[in-house]
């Protein structure tokens, strides 16, 4: 066990030195891997933040309930009473039909048309916020209100949120596909790097095979190289994305003096950073493993 550790430690050390000693080639590889990885990660960050923002915005979805056109004051007051007593209603606002007509007149510029109408075409309406904002609870409340006497129509104003949600879900699918493709690319890049390494170290491989090295021993430095290269690419991707977030937030900060909004992108969590280190490491190792398995068998002394 001790010699095993020592052997691995030594091999890891020489691999690290090798990686450090061939600066240009390995640096380019690492940068390419880093940029490739930063694409899906950056997109993921944007989507994740939009998700959080949409969560805040749609935290107060509203139910609009419309009375019948010929509903009387008393009937509207009855509904008002019910809403006051309902334990599921956070708060509500009555929009009387006269007020609604006035607002429509002012905002639409159709004053003449509206004035010429024989009667007010708009009903009394309630704008209701629920205590529980889960989609199920909202829908249940809407259905209940729609059953109340003289309520003709109740609707959930969450369509836009659902649309955003669908868009974000599509975005996440894009991230997944992009991530998968780039993971494949990372494996391919590592495969090729290791292929070149095995070929340039052909003599060395042949000699140590001749003097009794096991395949595991021969494979080890190549696997370490692939894993280290992948991990370094992950670190570069982390730097790119973190830097990008910092720049965006810096500029948003200046904007937020002008506007009241304090919209800020969240930085990558330590968990994200860990995944960004370990996943490329594993992929690099895998690419190297594929490559070494394939190319070492071609070298027989």
């Amino acid at each position: 066990m001790k010699t095993w550790l020592a052997q691995h430690g030594r091999c890891f050390g020489t691999t690290f030195v090798k990686l450090a000693r061939t600066p240009l080639g390995s640096v380019f590889n690492i940068i390419v891997i880093g940029i490739a990885l930063s694409l899906p990660v950056g997109l993921y960050v944007v989507i994740d933040n939009l998700q959080a923002a949409s969560g805040q915005l749609s935290a107060e979805p509203q139910i609009s309930a419309y009375m019948a056109l010929d509903a009387s004051r008393a009937e509207t007051a009855q509904i008002e009473n019910r809403l006051k007593q309902s334990p599921r209603v956070q708060r509500f606002r009555l929009v009387p039909r006269d007020q609604a007509l006035q607002e429509l007149k002012q905002s639409s510029g159709l004053a003449d048309v509206i004035d010429s109408l024989p009667q007010n075409p708009l009903p009394d309406a309630f704008v209701i916020s629920a205590k529980n904002n889960t989609p199920q609870a909202l829908e249940a409340l809407r259905d209940e209100i729609a059953q109340w006497p003289r309520v003709v129509h109740a609707q959930l104003d969450a369509a836009w949120a659902r649309r955003l949600d669908a868009t974000l879900r599509f975005g996440r699918l894009v991230v997944l596909i992009l991530g998968g493709l780039l993971a494949l690319a990372l494996v391919a890049v590592t495969f090729n790097t290791i292929r070149l390494q095995v070929l340039t170290q052909r003599d060395e491989v042949e000699v140590i095979k001749l003097i009794g090295a096991t395949d595991a021993f021969i494979r080890r430095p190549f696997l370490y190289y692939g894993a280290l290269q992948g991990a370094a690419g992950g670190i570069v991707a982390w730097l790119i994305v973190s830097g990008g977030i910092w720049v965006v937030n810096h500029n948003l900060g200046e904007l937020s003096h002008v506007y009241a909004s304090l919209f800020q992108l969240k930085q990558l969590t330590p968990g994200d950073a860990g995944a960004l280190l370990l996943l490329p490491l594993a992929l690099g190792w895998f690419g190297a493993w594929l490559s070494v398995g394939r190319h070492l068998s071609l070298i027989e002394p």
Partner: peptide
């Protein structure tokens, strides 16, 4: 080299 291969202590 042969000692490294057979896992000898340094």
């Amino acid at each position: 080299l042969p000692l490294e291969i057979s896992g000898y202590g340094a």
